[in-house]
Write a protein that binds this DNA or RNA. Structure first.
Length: 275
DNA sequence: CAGAATACCTGCGGGC
DNA sequence: TGCCCGCAGGTATTCT
């Protein structure tokens, strides 16, 4: 489900509820997520104070005195603040219960998400240590992209979706950024010009920032921690619009598969250059 | 090493 | 109505 703007939205919504709170109990109803939830998680979190909730790429880091809970929402995960009177649904796999009566509830139908406990520096954890740059940080530049793309034959769309290069960009925002930059999604990464790299970096930053302002994108069922949808879906230009008219030139948008992922683009506004 | 394919899992919509 | 197929916001792992 969530790409960077959705994870950022979840983090911002959760922060005021859980930072400073003390964990009273943890209930794991289904421990088989992407990896099994540690059987000692309840003991690890017992009586711990949440010092900080942060985001790295699409991962959320919940830091307590004893360590850090690394959380990922996969394709269909969500985190919400609920109370003990909130009805329990089929895929509500984990509750973290605070002494202030609030409950942080992890829900994930497809169970592609993860809750991983670590006592070490989370940035050295195998899940995080090879993550690429944060796209909204200043060090994510056209120069960086150009350098990393050199001699790479992979199409630019899966390239910018590779978290070892830059984190947080999934199928929706990759398509949107490429349209905004006027770059064909199949362009071999290494063939991008300096100008195209600059346009792509600008577009990525712009698309992600606008989406965060709108509270993320609700395609199907994304809800933030307060149970509200995101409103960026109204501004999607290509994602989910195959066959519909391009907002710039009115030609029907094309669809293809790239790295097993559906890809929508405009054959006029995103010409293939260099081939 | 790069790049592609596969695996994980449930739910939904479309076609028949 | 009901069954089967393909597809869905992700990414670690396995293959060629």
């Amino acid at each position: 489900m969530p790409e960077l703007p959705e994870v950022e939205t979840v983090m911002r919504g959760l922060k005021p509820h859980i930072e400073g709170a003390i964990i009273h109990d943890t209930v794991v109803r289904h421990h088989q997520l992407r990896w099994p939830i540690s059987s000692t998680l309840r003991d690890c979190l017992y009586q711990q104070r949440i010092n900080e909730l942060t985001r790295r790429g699409k991962y959320l880091l919940m830091r307590v005195d004893a360590g850090t809970l690394i959380m990922h929402l996969g394709m269909s995960g969500s985190l919400r603040i609920v109370t003990h009177t909130t009805p329990l649904n089929r895929h509500d796999h984990v509750d973290i219960i605070f002494s202030n009566q609030k409950i942080l509830r992890y829900t994930d139908p497809r169970r592609f998400g993860a809750l991983v406990w670590t006592v070490d520096n989370p940035y050295n954890h195998v899940l995080l240590k090879s993550q690429g740059l944060e796209p909204l940080e200043l060090d994510f530049t056209a120069n960086y992209l150009k350098m990393r793309a050199q001699h790479r034959h992979i199409a630019i769309k899966p390239f910018i979706m590779d978290s070892k290069i830059v984190v947080g960009i999934g199928n929706i925002y990759a398509a949107e950024a490429l349209f905004l930059a006027g770059i064909h999604p199949s362009t071999p990464a290494g063939l991008l010009t300096e100008l195209q790299c600059q346009q792509l970096v600008n577009s990525i930053k712009h698309v992600l920032q606008s989406a965060i302002k709108q509270g993320g994108t609700t395609v199907k069922d994304f809800i933030n921690s307060d149970g509200k949808p995101g409103y960026f879906a109204q501004q999607l230009t290509v994602y989910g619009r195959a066959g519909l008219p391009c907002i710039q030139c009115q030609a029907p948008l094309s669809a293809s598969k790239l790295g097993q992922r559906s890809t929508v683009f405009c054959i006029n506004c995103q010409p293939m250059i260099g081939l």
